[in-house]
Amino acid sequence: MTHTQKRVFINNAVMVLSTLSALVGMGFLLWILSVLVINGVEALNLNIFLNEGAPSGNPDGGLKHALIGQLYLVGAATFIGVPLGILAGTYLSEYGQKSKLSETIRDISDIMMSAPSIVIGAFVYAIVVHPMGHFSGWAGSIALTIIMLPIILRTTDDMLQLVPSTLREAAFALGAPKYKVITQVVYRGAKAGILTGVLLGVARVAGETAPLLFTSFNDNFLNTDMIKPMASLTVTMYNYATSPYEDWQRLGWAAAFILSMFILILNIIGRLFLLKKKGR
């Protein structure tokens, strides 16, 4: 074999290997996805949306408590986290810009985005659950807010920086004060991007389980009082899936399916927004 033939041979071998690994990787992921869809769809029925949790063996058990609890937990976190994140991101992009303080906040936020979420749970346990003496929906929401904050902050910051400075200058030239330039011109220019950030942030915290385990804890029944422990889809999923009861496990798959679809749809919508923005 000449050297070149050897090179061609190695090349082909590597290409086969890489295609194979792509197939293996995609195969596993497809497997997980199909398991999720098959089990999820099979377990879906109207009762799931209408009924609360029930003891195992009761065919009427549903996920209404977890769905609504999830909505409260994520809703409250969004309600607090989004405005705070946007404000902080606005500061970085419009006021702090490349200052040392801004860069530090950016770095720390980037790290926080990848930090273990269970530790956030421990932190909230210490500052909320322990002093209160019991788990609560609020504790869970606070944990989710802390996880969401850096995501919103960084995307807002990035998206605002993409707004061309000529737009700002044009507005300033008309004599508008800075806060009006920001809220009326800059935000408008970055609308799609910020919205994408919000969607991705919501999607991200909606899938969090670990930080809820010992903050919002769980409840097998419907509760809309955030002072009390509260059910979530994720913790319910964990509890049901690890239970020995088959009907509960089925409900766990239904919860997994509903939640995953929700998260996927948010991600897809977020991407479409960005695409549309780029297309223009």
Partner: peptide, 14 residues
Amino acid sequence: AIPSVVYGMWGLFY
């Protein structure tokens, strides 16, 4: 973007 709890569930059952 799929939540890790789903990977865990799949791991346990399959």
